[in-house]
């Protein structure tokens, strides 16, 4: 949160873009063909490379070739992640609809040899601040692909930078219509997904069945939320899950105004619900305008379908 320049949209956008740093850009990719002599030979002929080391080893610069799906694409579909698609969609939404590849860097920890089968994944490494180039104004997005062979040994990294930009208007061109405001676009970015790991997966499995599951210690019977592997009261690792009654009250709440996020429509309230079972959880409030939520308000559990794959437990308030 900044206090100065809060109205400057580029900062807010940049914060949202930065949030993608470190997220997966592609996962579970496998090379279409094993590293093989014919492809190496074709490459060397095309490049005019007569190095006698080839094709016993592959030219290092072929690295990316082994990860490409070919004209037909990867048989199992793209390894590209939702996060990367979201990032590109977010940039599209703000008018950065054009893309140009700017440069790449590669590292080769060990040479690839015929017979090697490659797998790869990629991470969104960085998103630059807004830059203005001769092409237009936009953001450099750098991804880093890790290419592995055999049992996962790293054989190469491929850092790839694109500029996703709004094309500069030619002189005397008519001014374009203003871009729609974030949050009002036809295709708004999606809400953050729940962070699911092995310690809390059971909760989200319950949500899928429309059950709100709370943990209870099998040694001291203390109920607990959020889900954790051990009991905060006695340290016991033995627990069971049980279904909450779904009734509770608003323990505290906030009204989100700024900055805007595309998946939400401020102002909106977010509440800390105290369930009848005595535990608290953060959730959304339905049925009550944002400015009518109050501490102590009784609430009742319901499930909100957010999009095709996200359903959340939320609480319907009863206005006094």
């Amino acid at each position: 949160m900044t206090r100065d320049d809060l109205d400057v949209d580029p900062d807010e956008l940049y914060g949202r873009l930065k949030a993608y740093e470190g997220r997966t850009a592609a996962s579970g990719g496998t090379g279409r063909d094993p590293v093989n002599e014919p492809m190496i030979r074709h490459w060397c002929e095309a490049m005019g490379d007569t190095n006698p080391a080839y094709p016993a080893v592959a030219p290092p610069t072929m690295l990316q070739a082994w990860t490409m799906g070919g004209l037909a694409g990867h048989p199992g579909g793209s390894a590209r992640s939702e996060a990367y698609d979201e990032l590109l969609a977010l940039l599209d939404d703000v008018g950065c609809t054009s893309v140009v590849a700017t440069d790449c860097e590669q590292e080769y920890p060990r040479p690839l040899r015929p017979g090697d089968r490659v797998t790869f994944d990629a991470v969104i490494e960085s998103v630059s601040p807004r830059k203005t180039t001769r092409l237009g104004t936009g953001y450099f997005v750098t991804t880093r692909m890790n290419v592995r062979a055999g049992d996962g040994e790293l054989v190469g990294t491929h850092r790839f930078r694109i500029l996703k930009y709004a094309p500069a208007r030619p002189k005397n061109a008519p001014k374009p219509e203003p871009a729609p405001k974030p949050g009002l676009t036809a295709d708004p970015a999606r809400r953050p997904r729940p962070v699911i790991n092995r310690d809390n997966a059971g909760f989200w499995e319950g949500v899928a069945r429309h059950q709100l599951l709370i943990q209870r210690c099998l040694d001291c019977a203390t109920p607990r939320f959020p889900w954790l592997p051990g009991c905060g009261a006695c340290g016991s690792l033995r627990w069971e899950a049980f279904e909450a009654s779904g009734t509770g009250t608003v323990f505290s709440y906030v009204v989100m105004h700024h900055p805007p996020f595309p998946a939400f429509d401020p102002p909106y309230a977010v509440a800390l619900i105290e369930l009848a079972e005595g535990v608290r959880m953060v959730s959304g409030i339905t049925g009550v305008p944002y400015d009518k939520v109050r501490i102590g308000m009784p609430v009742e559990l319901e499930f909100l379908r957010v999009d095709e794959e996200l359903e959340l437990p939320v609480f319907r308030g009863a206005e006094a």
Binding site: R191, P192, P194, P226, P259, F264, Y268, V270, L310, V314
Partner: peptide, 20 residues
């Protein structure tokens, strides 16, 4: 995961966590 209990509901910023 600890943060993940808040984000899907739109409690997204340090200001919002303090505000609660």
């Amino acid at each position: 995961a600890a943060l993940g209990w808040s984000l899907p509901f739109g409690l997204l910023t340090p200001a919002s966590w303090v505000a609660m």
